[in-house]
Design a protein around this nucleic acid. Structure first.
Lengths: 186, 186
DNA sequence: TATGACATGTAATCTGTTACATGATTAG
DNA sequence: CTAATCATGTAACAGATTACATGTCATA
């Protein structure tokens, strides 16, 4: 009925808007951090903000402080926060692993400020169980490439190593959260 | 004058067409291997093939063998092969590292069959020199995040680890090619 | 002859890129 | 006063996704 799919950029914006910001602020975040992947071009951000506002997920208010340039500050609405939380807590599908991990990592990065450490741990645990089958998949593919050019085999091996490294990171991150839990934080 | 930019999917198709194939063959490759990232949906592939043909980079011929279904086989033209080679040998820009490595890895995977082992080695060497500054960048960013939520810091650390693992792979791949070189293989 | 897999495509829609346009404010 | 930067946008265009449409061949 009422939910036109929100693209990755939209969720990135919702996540950043947990702290109220202007479009220009958001552009700066995108272009100064490793979130560049989500594109900081004005032609993407401003229309995206308008769409989110039209859907009632954010609300913009024009600042009118003395001597200030016209600046519109956007804030999450309750509905927007709910959408964001729902997206973050989505189960991790095998397809999420195939199509690059940017999306999953964005969800993880936002999980703690948006929901809490428990949600972060949940994502990590489900990553931990989703990764081994996927790795086995890739290793099987490598077997079928014995006759392929060296560069093709090496490229696949690069992918395998990167998922292995991701797996190790996952276990490390889990241990961080479990120590934190003992310490009584959050 | 005559070169409308070719998107990643276009180059992926050119690369696969070093071995003449039909659109359906290509779709199967995309959906059965880890090249799924380049989308194997018919609505993307068939228009892309038409564009490449319009640009004179590939040429399709309808197979008419007895009892066969209508199948169009596409082949690289000399112009298409030249374009592919030019793309593969492009210098590796810092921006290529930021925007995910899919593109670089595709170029590497295709480098050997398209050009030869020397081209593969060249890509690896330029990766080896491009990576350390980028890694330093990421580590600096991590320093500025000391006050950020744990999950945000961990996410960045995941990125760092994945680039470290890529760096190790690069050195490994270089050693593979250098051994091969000694062995006298092309 | 009806079903399902093969093989190719088209149409509507959405999003992002690129490049440009606009106006306000500060620095020299 | 002029130039640069801040801050926001718009317009034209290309490409991808989704869903549907078409026709052929093999099998039951």
């Amino acid at each position: 009925m009422s939910s036109p799919k929100i693209p990755a950029l939209g969720y990135a914006l919702l996540g950043l808007l947990m702290k109220p910001s202007s479009g220009y602020d958001l552009r700066k975040v995108f272009s100064s951090t490793s979130m560049k992947t989500y594109s900081g071009s004005p032609g993407a951000i401003y229309p995206a903000l308008q769409r989110l506002q039209k859907q009632g997920l954010i609300r913009g208010t024009v600042e009118e402080g003395a001597g200030l340039r016209r600046r519109q500050i956007f804030r999450l609405t309750p509905k927007g926060l709910a959408k964001l939380k729902a997206w973050i807590t989505l189960p991790i599908a095998p397809a999420d692993l195939l199509s690059g991990l940017k999306t999953v990592m964005l969800r993880f990065a936002l999980s703690e400020p948006a929901i809490g450490a428990a949600a972060s741990l949940a994502i990590l645990k489900s990553l931990e169980t989703a990764l081994p089958p996927h790795l086995q998949n890739l290793r099987d593919q490598l077997q079928t490439l014995k006759a392929a050019p060296t560069s093709a085999r090496l490229a696949l091996e690069c992918g395998i190593r990167s998922y292995e490294s991701l797996f190790e990171w996952t276990r490390f991150a889990i241990s961080v959260y479990e120590k934190e839990g003992k310490g009584g934080l959050s």
